[in-house]
Amino acid sequence: MKLVDYFRVPGISSRSFKVWQRNKDVFMKDIKLNFLPPFLEPILYLIALGFGLGKFVESIDGIPYARFIAPALIAVSVMYASFFECSYSSYVRMYYQKTFDAIIATPLTIEDVIAGELLWGATRSVINATVMIPVIALFGLIDMKYSLLIILFALLGGLLFAAIGMCFTALTPNIMSLNYPVLLFITPMFLFSGTFFPLSALPLPIQYFAIAFLPLTHIVNVIRSLSFGILEFSLLFDIAWVLFVSVILLILSINLMKKKLIV
């Protein structure tokens, strides 16, 4: 395959929805267990970091610490939900359960299957954001005015991290090696994307690096602004960045998976 072929737009049909539906059905089987993390995690983080650590941190740019990190928790959850769904979980379905093999013997193509997986990964992000917003609102740490926009943006962010996860699934030689991107990419992002302290605390080159290469930076930016009830022009830059990178990586991830699975 030539390099340009990796960026050719794949043919996807509405049948991808059947794959989405399959994953949703599995999710619904354990719905209580699946809803627990997005419900419980913000509570734990807010108590420990927001109110515990927050006692020692005065305020950031005039914002109480708990209020500062609350939107970052949503952003991080958006990242984790779709990244892990499309990396470890997709890998298990692909390699151990041979689910993809079974599905491509039907009128669905591999492109449909991967598109369905990506869409489902993004859906997990949306679910998490949707559950977390009211929980955080209970603490009075979010302006609900733009919460629908946050949920919509969680879909876009979810697609981005789904695509990132799927690229690693396609490239990894085995499931253990998926630990590398988690350790070298996801975890640093969790810490250095303006999540728990503002980006401006870091040296300038690192700030630029974060803005250029760490997708979470942009997700945090947008969700934080929206949850403060601020809708400003500069958000368009973040949204454009996420949109552009998402489209490229979604296409790339489908083509990489096709190359891996169709021999």
Partner: peptide, 18 residues
């Protein structure tokens, strides 16, 4: 390559949707 996340019945049902 049965779908290990489902029961016997569900396997057939999910497959029929494809």
């Amino acid at each position: 390559n049965l779908d290990g996340d489902f029961t016997v019945y569900e396997n057939l049902l999910v497959y029929s949707r494809y």
